[in-house]
Every structure is written in structure tokens, then in C-alpha cells.
Design a protein around this nucleic acid. Structure first.
Length: 466
RNA sequence: GGUCCCAUCGUCUAGCGGCCUAGGAUAUCGGCCUCUCACGCCGAAGACACGGGUUCGAGUCCCGUUGGGACCA
């Protein structure tokens, strides 16, 4: 048994987003790599913005990604007493003091300091008043006024902070709720977290947290601050960049394996390798290989990777149940599994997402589709009419109607008439699919079946060749 | 504004002082394959932000500048 313990601690104020998912993934990978423990903790002390729906949604997203946790989910709201007992400890040892300054007063201090060209911070007015607990009083940390605090970050290296830059942060608000910087310390130390792996937007919070650890006489966990994920405009990835939640990618037809692979490679690398199974990631993941600079979320590469997983890493059989919800959403008439599997196999190299596949599969599901207007104009020329009729006639009389027989027939027809195969194939393709691009003609004829093919050919004949 | 972080092709990255004429992936473009579209294969174009040092030698180490980002306000 080793003592590696990591955690993911989202606030349920929104769906699990891409950045959070990657942080969770890195924590999970690190724990699994070392045979340690991965804990899930819900930081819901922001009562105004936290909801149960978002909590649920985050758990669902974690499960969908396959990031299983060994303990939790713990909820901070269940742990208020713990925070208060640690707060009392700090108060009893003189590391914390009560402050009765009103929010307006503190705001004024900041503005005055700012106006005077100083750091805008709390001026320590109540520091030495010796106040006890009481209504409208907050508990503040007695922050050292001098010296430096060093953060030895596993990713960024050694970072020094001047303690004089820090002010006496609030530990417990007047309503009795702990602040983020306090609860996170208490949680991480009581849960025996060995490695705190989180976004580097927390770097500036870390010296305060370190000072609290020290005041409590506790040993520090290791810190690893991973760089942010940015949007194409190099700003922190957010709603205005479009889909940012894991759930949204699920709904767009991305596979969890592809998203995990993509996220793992965003800000982390293993030589030139691009494709990783989850087992490989667990085996190969190290914090040393996390890059120090932020990275831009590249939807195009995710799309490529998802397409790769669809065509190379999944069988048509495996894809079927995953595709079903997308088919149902479109209200297609039901089809046999064996039929669908054959259809899916022809679409695998042609689709990057399940959503695309559900669109592309339309002509297999129904003959109610629009005909590509430019295509019909271009390929249904009067001179093709006798050929088209010959096709209907011969195809109707075919015995096997398999790919070989079909291909032989079309090639012979092309040769005997001297008309290029594509000029024969394209109107047929449009008649069967409505489009000028599709899977192989003989494949789709074979899958659709003779009766359906004849039916569609006759319909197109009536529409475009009369 | 203050503090902190970061800096290799458009993007993700390899590189941890000589193996670099800077490699891979994606995207882009061209070719091949071909019944169309994809897939696949082959090829092209494309980067060490800038300036000083250190060193026999710097993408790699140090300093500065510039640029970007985060946090606090």
C-alpha cells in the first residue's frame, strides 16, 4: 500500500467542462499509475450557485469518461463542523482572529490603499483587538507580514511569494461558512491528499494555503499546477467559445475514448505517440511530461481523433448501441440490427461523429429524402435514359444480387456502351441516396436489397427521365 | 494597476548543450487509389518571438525586452 492520493474537486455550478475534465483525468491517471487512490469531492459551499442537477451531471460525465473514484463523492456542506473545528484550532493558537469590519469598510480600506498606491488589502484593523466570536464577525487568518513563502511546484518549479503581498484572508464568513482557501486546505489534509493536481489559475492562492497548513502544523501535499486550456482567441476556454461541457460532446456524438485520448494529449505528451488506450495512458502517464505552457483547444484535431476511433477502434456492432439514441432522435423507422450493422460498416470511414453518422445513414432508413438538385441536373441527361432503363431491367432479373454480380454487370455495361462508369453510376447513386457522394454503389445496393433498389430506381426514372 | 505563470510550424507537440539540414500529429495544398465521397498511401509548404550574454558549440542555460495568459483589485 502506498500513500498516493489525488482528488478532483469540482464546484457544481455548471456542467463538467473540458478543462475540469482534463484536470480530473490527470488526477485519475496519476493515482492509477501509482496504484493510489482517487477521491471525488464536491465543493458546494457556494450555496447560491451550486445545484443538485449540476452535481448529478458532473457525476454522469465522470462515469461516461470512465473516471471512477475510490472515495466520495464528499460534499463540503456535510463537513461544516470539520471546518469550524479547524478554525477554532487556529483561533485558539492565535493564528486567527475575529474581525468586525463591515464589507463596506473593508472595501473602503482597499480603495484608500489603492489610491495611496499601495496593495489593496485589508489593513489589519481588528488584528489586535482580541475580539471573540459574535454576529457579523468573520474569522481572519493572521498572515505573516514578512518573509517569503515558497511553492515547489511539480510542473512549474520553485515559485516564491512575498508574504507582504498577502493580506489577512477570511477563513470563516459571518454566516459561518468557510471560504474556498480554507475549506480546500482542511479537506485536502483531512483526506490525506498527497498530490494536489489542479489548474494553474490556483497558483496565486497556493501561498495562502501553504501558510494555513503551516499554521496548523501540518505537512504540505505536493502541488502540481497544470496550465489552462484556452480558446482559439487565447482566452481562457469558456462558453463563448462554443461547446465546452463534456456532456455537449457526448451529445454531439463524440466517443469517450476519443475525448479522453485528446484531453490526455493536450498539455501532456509521450514522445511522438498520438493514440493511447486508457491502459497505456495509465502506464505511461507522468507529471514530468506535462507541459508548462497553456494550450488551445483544437476542435479539428478532436474531430479527427473521434473519426479515427469510429473507423479504427470500434466495430460496427459496438457502434450500433451508441448510435441508437441518435437514430431515435431523428425518428427513423426501425430496422433490424443486422441491417443497421451492415449500413454502419459502410459509413465508418466517412463519419467523424455519431451525429454525422446518423445523418449519413438516412438513405438506408427511408426513401424520403431530397435529391441533390445540381446532381440531378448534371447526371440525368436524356442520353442516359436507355442505360438507366437497362439497369432497372437487368437488376430486376438478377439471381444473386450480390456485390460481385452487380459490379460485373455495371463494368460490362460501361464497356459495351462505351459510357464511362461514373456517368452510369452517378445517376443511380442519386436515385438510391439522393446525393452525389455515398458509400460504394454496389455495397449500398446489396444492403438496400433488390426490391428497394428497383423501387427507388423507378421513382427516380419517373421524376427525372420523363 | 499589482503579483504570478508562460513562449518551437495556424493548432497539439518532440527536443532535456553537439544526434537539428529542428522530428511527429492535425489542419492546408498537390498526387496516387477510385463508380462518387471518404479512408488509405505518397509528397509539398509551414516554427525555435527579439536582443544580449555563458560556452569550442544554444531551440536547449542566464539576463533583459516584447508578446500572451491567470489571479487579485
Amino acid at each position: 500500500m502506498n500513500s498516493i492520493v489525488t482528488r478532483f474537486a469540482p464546484s457544481p455550478t455548471g456542467h463538467l467542462h473540458i478543462g475540469g475534465a482534463r484536470t480530473a483525468l490527470f488526477n485519475w491517471l496519476f493515482a492509477r499509475h501509482h496504484g493510489g487512490k482517487f477521491i471525488l469531492r464536491i465543493e458546494n459551499t457556494d450555496l447560491q450557485r451550486s445545484t443538485q442537477e449540476y452535481t448529478k451531471s458532473i457525476l454522469v460525465a465522470m462515469e461516461w469518461l470512465g473516471l471512477d473514484w475510490d472515495e466520495g463523492p464528499y460534499y463540503q456542506t456535510d463537513r461544516i463542523d470539520i471546518y469550524r473545528s479547524y478554525a477554532k484550532k487556529l483561533y485558539d493558537t492565535g493564528w486567527a482572529y475575529y474581525c468586525e469590519c463591515s464589507p463596506e469598510e473593508v472595501e473602503r480600506m482597499r480603495q484608500e490603499a489603492h489610491a495611496a498606491g499601495l496593495k489593496p488589502k485589508y489593513n489589519g484593523k481588528c488584528r489586535d483587538k482580541g475580539l471573540g466570536p459574535g454576529p457579523n464577525r468573520v474569522l481572519r487568518f493572521r498572515c505573516p507580514q514578512s518573509g517569503i513563502t515558497v511553492l515547489n511546484d511539480l510542473i512549474k518549479g520553485s515559485i516564491e511569494f512575498d508574504n507582504s503581498e498577502l493580506d489577512d484572508l477570511v477563513l470563516i464568513r459571518s454566516d459561518g461558512m468557510p471560504t474556498y482557501n480554507f475549506s480546500v486546505v482542511v479537506d485536502d489534509l483531512t483526506m490525506k491528499i498527497s498530490h494536489v493536481i489542479r489548474g494553474d489559475d490556483h497558483i496565486n492562492n497556493t501561498p495562502r494555503q501553504i501558510l494555513i497548513y503551516q499554521a496548523l502544523g501540518e505537512t504540505l501535499p505536493k502541488f502540481a499546477h497544470v496550465p489552462m486550456i484556452l480558446g482559439p482567441d487565447k482566452k481562457r476556454l469558456s462558453k463563448r467559445h462554443g461547446a465546452t461541457s463534456v456532456i455537449a460532446y457526448k451529445e454531439m456524438g463524440y466517443l469517450p475514448e476519443a475525448l479522453v485520448n485528446y484531453l490526455a494529449r493536450l498539455g501532456w505528451s509521450y514522445g511522438d505517440q498520438e493514440i493511447f488506450t486508457k491502459e497505456e495512458l495509465v502506464q505511461k502517464f507522468t507529471i514530468e511530461n506535462i507541459s508548462k505552457s497553456s494550450s488551445i483547444f483544437d476542435m479539428e484535431k478532436l474531430r479527427w481523433l473521434n473519426g479515427y476511433y469510429i473507423r479504427e477502434k470500434k466495430s460496427a456492432e459496438e457502434l450500433l448501441p451508441l448510435l441508437m439514441p441518435f437514430l431515435e432522435k431523428r425518428g427513423y423507422p426501425p430496422k433490424d440490427d443486422s441491417y443497421l450493422i451492415k449500413a454502419i460498416a459502410t459509413l465508418q470511414p466517412r463519419c467523424s461523429t455519431l451525429d454525422e453518422m446518423a445523418d449519413a445513414i438516412r438513405f438506408y432508413m427511408t426513401d424520403e429524402f431530397e435529391y441533390d438538385e445540381k446532381g440531378t441536373k448534371k447526371f440525368f441527361k436524356p442520353e442516359i435514359k436507355p442505360i438507366f432503363e437497362e439497369v432497372i431491367k437487368t437488376v430486376a432479373s438478377m439471381e444473386h444480387f450480390d456485390e460481385k454480380e452487380l459490379e460485373d454487370f455495371f463494368r460490362n455495361l460501361s464497356e459495351s456502351t462505351g459510357i464511362k462508369l461514373r456517368l452510369i453510376a452517378q445517376p443511380i447513386r442519386i436515385a438510391l441516396t439522393g446525393k452525389t457522394a455515398s458509400p460504394g454503389l454496389f455495397e449500398i445496393m446489396n444492403i438496400l436489397g433488390k426490391d428497394e433498389v428497383i423501387k427507388r430506381l423507378q421513382k427516380a426514372h419517373k421524376l427525372f427521365l420523363n
